[in-house]
Design a protein around this nucleic acid. Structure first.
Lengths: 228, 228
DNA sequence: GTCTATATTCCGATAGAC
DNA sequence: GTCTATCGGAATATAGAC
């Protein structure tokens, strides 16, 4: 868990350790640390991601983020200008979406749905990619920025990949249907955590939901193959 | 739209009209108003539902609710004790869920999925049932009460109906998969509002999503018919 | 039942010393 | 870059008059 090492340099000691040591003589790094840049920003960002994910935007206070990161609240403002700026930074995509999309859509077309489900589950199971995704999903129904970000992701990745590989005019709707299924799956399994879906294995989820996604993307929808 | 008549007795005048007139001589109503009970509570609840739905729990202030309802903020506290109490009241199911569930699951088993999608869309298109549903969905990923409420609804209605009508051990998982699909559909179409799904007709949505739901509920999931 | 006044708390943001 | 001190505001909730 990433929680452990964070706790190790937790609230109590970090402030003292960090303060006053602008850049000590450290010949280990060839040129020394680049001036005006420490890892404090990353610490703050990690803490913010965790709190935004678990408590939401409004309930998360800058003071709490600073405390968890072991820094001064004013530093958070200094780096991110405002609470909204902090939220935007915490929502940055932690992965190369294009590469992931290609990994899904290249390969045999028979199992695109299953690969899609498996990949998405993988992103949510991984501790490093999970928090930003939770933040985006939680705030998609609350914060305008997050909603736009989610929409752009859909259009850019799922729909984009689909449209570029077919001349089916119903591709946008297909992509969006697949996206809606994933949103629901992720919300129920990872965010709300309703059983028995929350503790089912990834394989079970892939087996159960993969074909539905496959049908949205490649199979019949509506009466024929076309839906306006 | 219900917004119009509410605006009619809007912010500006209502307070003055209501204040001071404890119960004016009004021989039109036979016995006068029943003492100790007015429609103020319902007014507050309507305003709260609207604001909780559009702005979320944290951004909605009791002051704003009171202003929109045309009453004093202290009255809101008097009726609902706290802001949380107001939220709980605003999340009350506006429909008879059992009756709706029976309407879906009774009838030919071939089109349960389509009836389910059509019914859910109907609830979200109807102005009177929409607000409480939005409140529940928005807060499901934020507020613990709302999450539990949503979970109970799933277990009680979809899963319950399914389990009571079959001896398939995978019924709980099936019901939950269907629920997750509906959650995603509703979130994308009604809450976030991503095109082209947001402006598609109900018939198109039913045609596109119905079979997927049908498959979750009645068809093959996983390798065989059983998933632990 | 309705309203006034206020107690209490806590937040985001700023200014400026070191 | 880092931190102290504080401003200005808004929120929920309470106490009590009418």
């Amino acid at each position: 868990m990433a929680a452990a090492d964070e706790a190790a340099r937790g609230v109590a000691g970090a402030t003292l350790v960090r303060s006053g040591t602008k850049h000590a003589e450290n010949p280990a790094t060839p040129r020394g640390r680049r001036p005006g840049q420490t890892d404090t920003k990353k610490l703050i960002l990690e803490a913010a991601g965790r709190l935004f994910a678990s408590a939401g935007y409004e309930r998360t206070t800058i003071r709490a983020v600073a405390e968890r990161a072991g820094v001064d609240p004013a530093l958070v403002m200094h780096y991110f200008s405002s609470k909204e700026g902090l939220l935007r930074a915490a929502m940055e995509w932690p992965v190369d979406v294009d590469q992931i999309a290609r990994g899904i859509f290249e390969g045999d077309p028979e199992h695109i749905g299953e690969r899609l489900v498996r990949t998405v589950c993988g992103l949510w199971e991984d501790e490093t990619t999970r928090h930003p995704l939770v933040v985006i999903l939680r705030n998609s129904v609350q914060h305008e920025d997050a909603g736009r970000l989610a929409s752009e992701f859909v259009r850019q990745v799922i729909v984009g990949q689909l449209v570029s590989r077919t001349d089916d005019p119903s591709a946008p709707l297909r992509g969006l249907l697949a996206h809606s299924a994933l949103v629901g799956l992720v919300a129920v399994r990872y965010v709300i955590g309703i059983e028995p879906l929350a503790s089912a294995s990834v394989d079970e989820v892939v087996q159960a939901a993969g074909p539905a996604l496959q049908r949205y993307l490649m199979g019949d929808i509506g009466a024929g193959d076309e839906v306006t």
